[in-house]
């Protein structure tokens, strides 16, 4: 077996793939969050933004790259987890780990985030593309799908908003470990920069979590 072909079948190759796809998905989260800010600024702006995101050819191509990124991250995770379970078949009767809970449970938090992602796509991506969305007018007076009203209506349900809040908190813990872990997996570790990368990872996790939970919380409370 040649080494270049074997790179991604080796343990470290799979870790590189995990790291690269993870950081790529982080960039998606940030862009998604920035776009969502229009929910707070102006309903018309948000509707025009969603139309742009679902019609721009470049974004459509990126959508495919994003799906590939998600699938690679998930499939790689399943393969790594399977190998890890095989590597430790017998558990200790008494085991005290010094590491953080969230660093040991990336598979669990990841699975819950995936379940949330399916719900989220079903509500908004599928709902927008194939669902029955009411029409309204954009800034130039032409018809546009009223995504804004759909989002606001979804978040008026307490159970739905609660799922969002819980999922985003778990995503935060996933990012807090994953972001800095990606750099370590790629071998990017440095006495001076690694503490800064860890802080940046935590800051990123906090921004993403608080940013995304602000939408369900705001729209739920304002509709009480």
């Amino acid at each position: 077996m040649s080494n270049s072909a074997g790179l991604f079948s080796s343990s470290l190759g799979r870790k590189y793939l995990m790291a690269i796809t993870g950081l790529f998905l982080c960039s998606f989260l940030l862009i998604h969050l920035i776009g969502n800010v229009t929910l707070f600024t102006d309903p018309v702006q948000f509707n025009e933004y969603t139309r742009f995101m679902s019609s721009n050819p470049l974004i459509r191509v990126m959508e495919i790259v994003l799906v590939v990124g998600f699938l690679a991250h998930i499939i790689d995770a399943i393969m790594l987890t399977k190998a890890n379970k095989t590597a430790q078949p017998v558990k200790y009767a008494m085991d005290k780990k010094k590491s953080t809970w969230y660093s040991r449970n990336m598979g669990l938090t990841g699975t819950i985030i995936l379940a949330f992602l399916i719900l989220h796509l079903q509500s908004f991506w599928y709902g927008y593309k194939f669902g029955d969305v009411a029409m309204t007018l954009d800034s130039s007076g032409t018809d546009i799908k009223d995504m804004y009203t759909m989002v606001v209506a979804a978040f008026s349900q307490s159970w739905y908003s609660a799922i969002y809040v819980v999922a985003m908190i778990l995503l935060g813990t996933h990012l807090n470990h994953g972001f800095q872990s990606a750099f370590q997996s790629m071998g990017l570790r440095h006495k001076k920069y690694t503490p800064a990368i860890k802080k940046a990872g935590t800051a990123f996790a906090v921004i993403i979590t608080l940013g995304f939970i602000s939408f369900p919380i705001y729209f739920y409370i304002t509709q009480l």
Binding site: L12, K15, Y16, A83, A87, S99, R104, R189
Partner: peptide, 26 residues
Amino acid sequence: GNCTNTGDCEVQCPKGISLDNIALMN
């Protein structure tokens, strides 16, 4: 198994071998 960067090894190593080495190996 594979490394998930939890860091338990570094804490429990009787010789204090650092995760720096894993990064260097990577």
